[in-house]
Amino acid sequence: MLPSTGISSPPAKILSLDLCSDWLLAKYADRSQVVALSPLLKQYPVEWIGDEWPVHDGSLEQILQLKPDLILSGEFNALILRQRLIALKMAVEVLPLPRTLPDVVEYERRFLSLIGLPAARASQPPAATPLSGSAERLLLLGANGIGTGRQTFENDVIQRAGWRNYLESDGYQSLDLEQLVTDPPDVVMWSAPKSPALANQFAKHPALHRAIPEKRWLSSSYWQWQCPGPWTWELIEQLREQRSR
C-alpha cells in the first residue's frame, strides 16, 4: 500500500497544484499517469517541459471533472482550494519544501513513493567541497537588489559548492549599493527572471559593474533556485565548475 494515501496500486490520475510538484512529475512520472499540472507552469515555463503536458485552470470545477486519484501540493500553495478538495474527501498530499540539503533526498523519496516508484530512485547529493580560508566570496543577487545571506537553503548550496557567502547576516537582505561598491564581492551570481522590468535595474547599475568586472558576473538558470529537487545537485556541480574557471 502506498504511504499516506491508502492506495494499493500506483495512482493513475495525478494532478498538481504547485510548480515544484509540476517539475517533479515531469521528471519522474509517466506522462500517462498525469491528468494535469498546475497553471503555474504556464506562468513560469521551463524549456525541458514541453506542451504535451496538460495544465488545469486552477478551478475546483475542472479539477473535479478530471477526477484525480492523487493531488499533490506544496505546503504554501492553493490553500483555499486545497481545503475545499480535502473537505470533498479527495486524496490530497502536501509536500513541505526542503529547508536543508539532506531534506531534499527525503523530499524526493516521499514523492517517488507517493507516485508508485521506488524511493531508492531519489538522487543523491554530491560530496561537499571543503571550504578553505581562501574561498572566494560569492554574492547571490536576485531581483530588486535582494541578496541571500546565511541560514538559508541557498547558502547551503553555495557552501556545498566551495564558495563563501559574501553576506554574513542571516536571511534575505536589501543590498546597499554604496557598500557593495566599497567592498565588492569576488563574484556575483545573478539569479533573477529574464525581464527588462524595474526589478532588475539594481543589477544593471553602472557603479556596480565598474566595481565588479564583467568576467566576475556568473549566471545560472533561475528556475533551478526556485524549487529544491534533483536539479539542486546539478546547480551545485555548475557552481563548483565555475570556481575552477
Rank of each mutant, 00 (worst) to 15 (best):
Q124C: 07
A127H: 11
A127N: 13
T129I: 14
T129Q: 12
L131G: 08
S132H: 10
S134P: 01
A135W: 01
E136G: 11
E136Q: 15
L139T: 02
A143L: 05
G145S: 11
G145D: 09
G147N: 06
G147C: 05
T148H: 05
G149Y: 03
R150C: 04
R150A: 12
T152L: 01
T152Q: 01
T152Y: 01
T152M: 04
E154K: 02
E154W: 00
N155R: 04
D156S: 15
D156M: 14
Q159H: 12
R160G: 08
R160K: 11
A161G: 05
G162N: 02
Y166L: 03
L167R: 04
G171K: 00
G171H: 05
Q173L: 15
L175F: 03
V181P: 01
D183A: 12
P184D: 08
P184Q: 10
P184H: 09
P184Y: 09
D186Q: 11
V187G: 00
V188W: 00
V188N: 02
M189V: 06
W190F: 13
A192Y: 09
A192E: 07
A192V: 02
P193T: 07
P193I: 06
P196W: 04
P196H: 01
A197I: 09
N200H: 12
Q201R: 15
A203S: 15
H205K: 13
P206F: 07
P206N: 13
A207N: 11
A207D: 10
A207K: 14
L208H: 07
L208M: 10
H209E: 10
I212N: 03
P213F: 12
E214I: 10
K215G: 04
K215E: 14
R216C: 13
R216I: 03
L218S: 06
L218T: 04
L218Y: 10
S220M: 11
S220K: 04
S220V: 12
Y222S: 05
Q224E: 14
W225C: 00
W225M: 08
W225I: 00
C227V: 05
C227K: 03
C227F: 01
P228D: 09
P228E: 08
P228G: 09
G229P: 02
W231C: 02
E234A: 13
E234C: 07
I236V: 15
E237G: 07
L239Q: 05
R240T: 11
R240M: 09
